[in-house]
Amino acid sequence: MRAAVVSSFGGPEAVEIVEVAVPEPGTRQVRIKVAAAGVNPVDAGVRAGVFGGAGQRLGLGWDVAGVVEAVGVASGWTVGDEVVALAYGTAKTLGTHADLVVVDADAVAAAPRSVDVAHAASLPLNALAAAQALDRLGLEPGQNLLITGAAGAVGGYAVQLAARLGVSVTALAREGDEELVRSLGADRFVSDGVAPRSVDAVLDAAILGADALDWVRDGGAFVGVIPGAHPASVRGVGTSAVEVAADGARLAELVALVDEGVLTTRVAGTYALDEVVKAHARLAEGGLRGRLVLVP
């Protein structure tokens, strides 16, 4: 079967399609026939060597939508189930950018019924990251949250989820994105920041770091999206970063919100698996409003 991997670090051209053995599911695992798989910035990071792993062949891809093809003992799933899942890890030998992938059964959820497989594949990593970041912030209804990069994949889900919680959302994005982020539930739009110490919390999906921290009131909260890269605490502001965790139960809740029309999935474009280099090149150009998705 085919899989997208990197054996040496570099730009989009470092990604190659190779033939690998069909993976077998172990206890409490399932094998999924990939119907669609999201291409995320973390894949570009793996490709570029940001997370290390020199001298290894690294598989790419975290998001997957597809059909259960084989099950291990005590998986709880059945062959033929339509599912979505998160295949966590920056140093895995096989990711979701492949014809088949094996994942832990507790990372899997039934696929949404209301969207196609490409849109379903845009959900796991980014929606889980947004939900888990909001969990860290622990905001109450009526509190003020500034979301940077609010028009992006993580930021867009965060806007919708925070608005659903009754949090007052200020969305920081490019000037042309105001209509979009307001449609997602933002109460206020800004394109160049806010007054210092004027919000209760920041979810920094744009990775602005210390600049965004300055906008948080004393004793507020800051959550970034790159583990270990968040700024140090100042003025009593609690700072941390979300490291997304595979969580099938939470993913099922997010799927339900998609089917209820609460969460909007966005796909910026689709590519065949054999066009993965083109997908990485497009990702590198930036400016996407939604996820690129591989459709094997």
Score class of each variant (00 low, 15 high):
Val167Asp: 01
Leu137Pro: 05
Leu125Asp: 04
Ala105Gln: 08
Asp177Thr: 03
Leu161Cys: 03
Gly156Tyr: 11
Asp104Ile: 00
Gly142His: 05
Ala70Arg: 15
Gly89Gln: 11
Ala109Tyr: 08
Leu139His: 06
Val73Ala: 15
Ala129His: 00
Val103Tyr: 01
Val84Arg: 07
Thr148Lys: 00
Asp187Asn: 12
Gly72Ser: 09
Trp77Gln: 04
Gly80Cys: 12
Ala153Met: 12
Asp106Tyr: 07
Thr170Phe: 00
Arg113Met: 12
Leu86Lys: 06
Ala131Asn: 13
Val73His: 15
Val117Lys: 13
Ala110Val: 14
Ala74Phe: 13
Leu86Thr: 09
Leu180Pro: 06
Val159His: 00
Glu140His: 12
Leu137Arg: 03
Arg188Met: 09
Ala151Lys: 01
Ala127Phe: 11
Ala131Gln: 13
Ala163His: 11
Glu140Tyr: 07
Val79Trp: 08
Thr170Asn: 04
Val73Trp: 15
Arg188Val: 14
Val154Pro: 02
Asp177Glu: 13
Arg136Ser: 13
Leu123Lys: 07
Asn144Met: 04
Gly72Asn: 07
Asp104Asn: 10
Arg188Ala: 14
His97Ala: 01
Ala129Val: 13
Val84Pro: 13
Ala107Pro: 00
Gly89Ala: 11
Arg188His: 14
Ala153Arg: 03
Asp104Ala: 12
Gly89Arg: 12
Gly142Glu: 11
